[in-house]
Structure formats: C-alpha cells, structure tokens
Simulated scan of single mutants.
Amino acid sequence: MTIQISEIAKLPTRFGEFNIQSFKENDKEHLCIFKGKLDKEVNIRIHSECLTGDVLGSLKCDCGEQLEFSLKYIQEHGGMIIYLRQEGRGIGLFNKINAYALQDKGLNTIEANHQLGFKADERSYEIVDFILKHYRISKINLLTNNPEKLNTLKERINLRVPILIKANRFNKDYLEVKHTQMGHLN
C-alpha cells in the first residue's frame, strides 16, 4: 500500500478551529481533522463520506448529523475525525443514487444494495490502522454505533462513545434497518 501524506494545515470551521491532513491512497484522498493533543488515547470518529448527508443535508440518512455531532464533540473534548472517501457504504455516488431510486420504490437500504449486486456494506478500514500508526495512537475512544468498526478496531478501543441521532420521517425506516439487520447500537 503506497500512501502519500500531505502537510498539516489549519481549518477554521463553524464548529471551531481544527488541523487537517490528507492521506492519498491510490485514487482516494482521505482526511484527518483533529484538535488538541493526539496522545496515546484519543477520541476518534471514523466517518465515511456521504455527499448527500454531509454536504446537501439529506434527511434520508443520519450521516450529516453524525458528522456534525462528531465535529462538536472533537471541538469540545479534542481528538480526530478520520474522513474516509468511500461514499455510499463503499459503492460510490453513482450507485448510491441508483440505490436511492430503488429505495423510492420500496426497497430498504440493504435490499437496494443487493439488487445492484453489492453487499449491504462494501467499506473497508485498512487505511485507519495506517493513519493511527502514523500518529502513534494506540488506544482510542471510538465515536460510533457501528459494530463493524468496533470489531475491526477492537484491539485499540478503550471506550465506545455512542452517537445518538433522533429519527425523522425520512430516515426512520433506514435507522431501523441499520439497528435490526446490521446490528448498529444505540
């Protein structure tokens, strides 16, 4: 795995001032947004890109709200958001929009991915280990509800910080499927 690492730059946001650094893995350019000391035990959010939720404010998912929660949490407590460029649970933006169209016809998020020939979740987290080693982070407090992230990083996790997002009429079924069929925690 060949990874290029950018310089560290300042990133003032509406949530506060952070530092930002990019890790280029082939055609994917991941981000680390961090604040405070990155000691041996760090608050970490691993967030996969969601253009519709993070940027456009889509109510079909909880991604944008999870990112906002995490930015506020890191601003207050210090830590890092590892922003992974793996849109639509790893199926890409084009396929995600096609999955949305299938959901508009009554399929749930998992059924839509399967209809398109994908697993329920195609994401991978190998780059996370590289990033944590780069910053010499050995123990983390992971901001997540996702059991896959907990399983992947179990050797490093000291504590899980739940991200509680209220359902709305557009994402109620989506959140229920994540909980009942994908094992997401509350």
Results as ranks from 00 to 15, higher is better:
3 I>Y: 10
3 I>L: 10
4 Q>N: 15
5 I>E: 15
13 T>M: 03
14 R>E: 14
16 G>M: 08
26 N>W: 06
27 D>L: 12
27 D>H: 14
28 K>Y: 07
29 E>A: 13
35 K>N: 08
37 K>N: 14
43 N>G: 05
49 E>M: 07
49 E>S: 08
50 C>F: 00
58 S>T: 11
59 L>P: 01
61 C>E: 05
63 C>P: 08
65 E>M: 13
65 E>G: 03
82 I>F: 04
90 G>Q: 09
91 I>Q: 01
101 A>S: 15
101 A>Q: 15
102 L>A: 12
102 L>V: 13
107 L>C: 10
111 E>W: 02
113 N>D: 15
114 H>Y: 09
116 L>V: 14
117 G>Y: 03
125 Y>C: 07
128 V>Y: 00
129 D>P: 00
133 K>P: 01
136 R>F: 09
140 I>S: 05
141 N>R: 15
147 P>I: 08
147 P>T: 01
149 K>P: 02
149 K>C: 02
150 L>N: 07
153 L>P: 04
158 N>V: 13
159 L>Q: 15
161 V>A: 06
163 I>S: 02
164 L>H: 14
164 L>Q: 10
168 N>L: 14
170 F>E: 15
173 D>A: 15
174 Y>R: 09
175 L>F: 06
177 V>F: 05
181 Q>V: 06
186 N>T: 13
